[in-house]
Design a protein around this nucleic acid. Structure first.
Length: 210
DNA sequence: TTATTGATGGTCT
DNA sequence: GACCATCAATAAG
């Protein structure tokens, strides 16, 4: 893994524009590797995404949007760039970014793992509530853990992640111009349907990948 | 180091 | 009532 992933290129942080998310989830997923997820506020938290999965809506049997609109998944059919948060296995919140190309389509990218960069002590405290033995690697090396570290739950369903005039972001996706050159593509994990499709992206040889 | 299992509750049929 | 886009503790090697 490129050591540059471990540092924040603070001077070059640029929020993503809404257009970024108006594309096929597969393209968005690839491009999200190396990007920053920021919890804004007085004590910001910043992590660098190193593992994501694309869920491609109606054409993807593993996608929550496969069978059409429900109360839970409706955000996936709406404006790209919003957070789709859902509860899984009776215990964990999982965070996705809504993205799709055309109106009337649906899709999302699951944020699976990240490298903690800023606010590590705060993230450690948040994770300790669930696992007192948490290590720096187990801070954010899985989709449930990532949400615990960043404090993401159902109250953040529908939050917008790009910049928009007059909107105050709680979470933000941004680039610090760290170019990923060691991204690998594999089958998605933790699912039964369509797990053979290579729609998971992660950084090669990264300790935080799940 | 890998494999296995129990905890746990909303969503959908 | 079955299904889960998970995790942590344990056991075995």
């Amino acid at each position: 893994m490129d050591q540059k992933y471990l540092q924040l290129n603070e001077d070059k942080i640029k929020p993503l524009k809404p257009e970024f998310f108006y594309r096929d989830p597969l393209d968005v997923a690839y491009d999200l590797i190396g990007k920053l997820l920021i919890k804004t506020g007085q004590n910001p938290l910043i992590v660098r995404l190193v593992e994501v999965e694309a869920y491609r809506g109606k054409k993807d049997p593993a996608s929550h949007a496969y069978k059409g609109v429900t109360k839970r998944n409706k955000i996936m059919f709406q404006e790209p760039g919003h957070l789709y948060v859902y509860f899984n296995y009776g215990m964990y919140w999982l965070a996705n970014v809504v993205c799709h190309k055309e109106k009337n389509e649906a899709g999302a990218v699951l944020l699976r793992a990240a490298i903690p960069l800023i606010g590590i002590e705060q993230m450690r405290q948040a994770r300790r509530k669930h696992n007192p033995k948490v290590t720096i690697k187990s801070l954010t090396n899985g989709p449930g853990k990532l949400c615990q570290a960043l404090g993401i739950d159902k109250s953040h369903y529908g939050e917008f992640l790009a910049v928009k005039k007059g909107y105050e972001n709680k979470f933000l996706l941004a680039s610090d111009c760290t170019k990923p050159k060691d991204v690998i593509q594999t089958g998605r994990i933790g699912i039964k349907k369509a797990s053979d499709l290579p729609w998971r992206f992660c950084v090669k040889d990264c300790e935080w990948v799940s």
